[in-house]
């Protein structure tokens, strides 16, 4: 009887880690989606990706401190601000980078600079201390699922992430613009020769990349707690791990990568917590050694 009780407890802990890992991973799937889109379409390595997540988080923070208490309004604000910024920013940056001899390396250097600027500006404006966005959902009672309590904030963040990911999937596979986007992912020059307005589509994808990062930023207080100006670097590294696990250049791979990352992290926190931050790096190494194209990769990558 005692053995059954112990086994039951161990199973419950395992089950909790897996479910929490899935919720956590879905958020990270959304967080890394923009990085994947930008690389897939423009071969741009956005080292400032995590900083755009941070910008989204601070937009939500500023909105919250000015009385906009709903995360939904924060999400709408980010869509407008980062969407507009992304669309406008693409034209002075995108065509030059994509037309350069080495867009991957040059974009990596450019966005490293952008990352430093965004971080420094955020420190100047908000200081170094962590701040919180006290959304109401953080105080809602936990949801009981199969006898165990899960945070409603995580469920909300995972749910919104799934909706956004599905919307991006719908855009890619069920709209004319999405067909054009995938055509550019396949071969930029051939797409241009068939009459696709490559720069217009790229600008939309660039804006979409920043918007998805910003949306993850708005949701980040629900999942990772406090926000702070230097949070971007760690998020960028995790996002890289997630997209490489799934497949760099394949947006659907972000979902798989996110789930694998989230579940692995929570299992590590459960059974070997001291080493839990090694998870993204170990997964990254394993994937690069065993399947360099990523789990959903079909061919040889160009980067």
């Amino acid at each position: 009887m005692q053995t059954f009780r112990v086994e039951g407890r161990l199973l419950r802990i395992l089950f909790y880690a897996i479910i929490s890992g899935m919720l956590f991973g879905l958020f990270f799937a959304l967080m890394s989606l923009g990085l994947n889109l930008l690389f897939g379409v423009m071969r741009m390595v956005n080292l400032a990706h995590g900083d755009f997540v941070m910008v989204g988080a601070f937009i939500a923070y500023v909105a919250y401190t000015h009385g906009i208490l709903s995360p939904w309004l924060g999400l709408a604000l980010v869509i407008v601000i980062l969407g507009g910024l992304g669309f406008v920013l693409y034209f002075p940056i995108g065509p030059r980078l994509t037309g350069s001899y080495d867009p991957e390396m040059l974009s990596l250097i450019l966005f490293f600079g952008v990352s430093q600027i965004l971080e420094a500006l955020a420190v100047m404006v908000f200081g170094n201390n962590p701040v919180a966005v006290g959304y109401h959902v953080l105080t809602v009672k936990p949801v009981n699922l199969l006898g165990q309590a899960y945070q409603p904030s995580w469920i909300l963040a995972a749910g919104v992430s799934v909706i956004v990911i599905l919307a991006v999937y719908g855009y890619l596979y069920h709209t004319r613009l999405g067909y054009a986007t995938r055509a550019i992912m396949g071969d930029r020059e051939e797409s241009e020769s068939t009459g696709i307005n490559v720069h217009r589509v790229s600008a939309i994808v660039f804006a979409l990349g920043l918007v998805t990062a910003g949306l993850a930023g708005v949701l980040s207080p629900l999942v990772i707690g406090s926000i702070y100006p230097t949070m971007g670097l760690g998020l960028t590294i995790t996002a890289f791990a997630v997209v490489i696990i799934g497949s760099l250049g394949n947006p659907l791979g972000s979902i798989l990568g996110g789930l694998i990352y989230g579940i692995s992290l929570m299992l590590m926190e459960t059974y070997l917590s001291t080493w839990s931050t090694m998870v993204p790096y170990v997964l990254l190494l394993l994937i690069l050694l065993l399947r360099p194209t990523g789990l959903l990769g079909k061919g040889v990558r160009r980067a």
């Binding site: 890992g21 926190e269 917590s273 001291t274 839990s276 931050t277």
Partner: peptide, 10 residues
């Protein structure tokens, strides 16, 4: 846990 830990739920 690593000092960089930000998720304590599990």
């Amino acid at each position: 846990v690593p000092t960089s830990t930000s998720s304590y739920t599990v």
